[in-house]
Nucleic acid binder design. Structure first.
Lengths: 204, 204
DNA sequence: GTCTATAAGGTGATAGAC
DNA sequence: GTCTATCACCTTATAGAC
């Protein structure tokens, strides 16, 4: 890697451009020409590096998925009590999604359009949340939080983190009547609000 | 309407077919031929009834949107105390989404792909949640629930109702390791679980 | 590795017969 | 209202020069 900070390699340019266009437009809506333009290269080069549109898309989907399911366990393994872990988890995940707000809908949408093939990819990238589930169960067993299916608690936390960000157009235009400032306000202390909401919901 | 229960009119067939295909594939992925096949008619008829693919899509998008934002206020205006209203709201909304599980992602995805035009449509169908917001504020003022931005409470409830249903492929394959039975179990008492979670979160 | 040119097939839309 | 035939354009993909 001699070209450090000089210019991106052609392949990197392709990856970045493909990611941008596919996530914005979806597989069906994306055009190879648009990806080539975005990358500043010739359309044929896309086929030279990746044989087909499908192959290019698959690469992007996998990348997007890995970003969407980052190391959730790591953030949960913060030192401290359960409350600290929950707060760390929520903080990390809201930060993650705010950086990639379009990825969750992209993934869910493509999973709807082509369930069979993509579900295989999802399964392939096996994510293990066992430690998190066990920590939750341990809290329940020791009567430090109320009984709840551990998986349900995780789903609830993810829902509260992800939904307001991916549903921004609807929250802002429908619920907040287009008031951008109010949306900003709502999201500015979202981490604290979600943490408070969740912790109150599970306290004994 | 003489043909009651005999056969759907051509227009109805088109509407049903277009809804199915557009929601499944999106605007870009849908094919006029597929819609025609699904409706059991000729492709030209689509253009006879709706001038273009865009017009047909716009009609479907509006219909989908109205179904997604049903009369939320009505379910909130159940008789009884605040808890009863919240429970009615959650019950109605989960029932709604379970009938149309693909619509939320469809709407969010198309809003991402074409924000400008579709946001106008969203604004056009003006939904007024003022009564709900005021009821929540009233509960806060009377110190029957803890202080929270009313819009935030609504977003949280919607998140908990919608997310597990639209994210089914991921919840089932990633979190539950493909265990369909566990997903069914989780969703079977979802209404009660969400109600308990929310009510505990806002209790004083 | 990168480009130009072009093939091969699909897609929305319309004309016109019935 | 409904069909067949067809146009005009777009899109992926490849061949081949440099």
């Amino acid at each position: 890697m001699v070209n450090t900070m000089v210019e991106k390699s052609t392949e990197d340019k392709i990856v970045d451009a493909a990611e941008k266009v596919f996530i914005e437009k979806g597989l069906a809506g994306a055009r190879m020409q648009e990806i080539a333009d975005e990358a500043g290269i010739n359309k044929s080069l896309l086929h030279y590096y990746y044989r087909s549109k499908e192959k290019l898309f698959e690469m992007v989907f996998k990348m997007a998925f890995k970003r969407f399911v980052p190391n959730l366990i790591k953030s949960f393994e913060q030192p401290g009590d359960f409350e600290a872990k929950v707060r760390a988890f929520i903080g990390t995940y809201i930060d993650t999604i705010e950086k990639i707000p379009h990825i969750p809908v992209f993934i869910l949408s493509e999973l709807t359009n082509n369930p069979r093939r993509l579900v295989e990819i999802v399964k392939g990238l096996n994510v293990d949340l066992t430690p998190v589930l066990q920590t939750i169960q341990n809290e329940i067993d020791n009567k430090r939080i109320r009984p709840i299916l551990p998986e349900t608690l995780i789903v609830n936390v993810l829902a509260l983190c992800i939904f307001p960000i991916v549903a921004k157009p609807m929250v802002q235009n429908l619920l907040l009547k287009g008031d951008q400032e109010k949306y900003r306000l709502m999201m500015s202390n979202r981490k604290e609000e979600v943490a408070r909401f969740v912790l109150a919901a599970i306290q004994i």
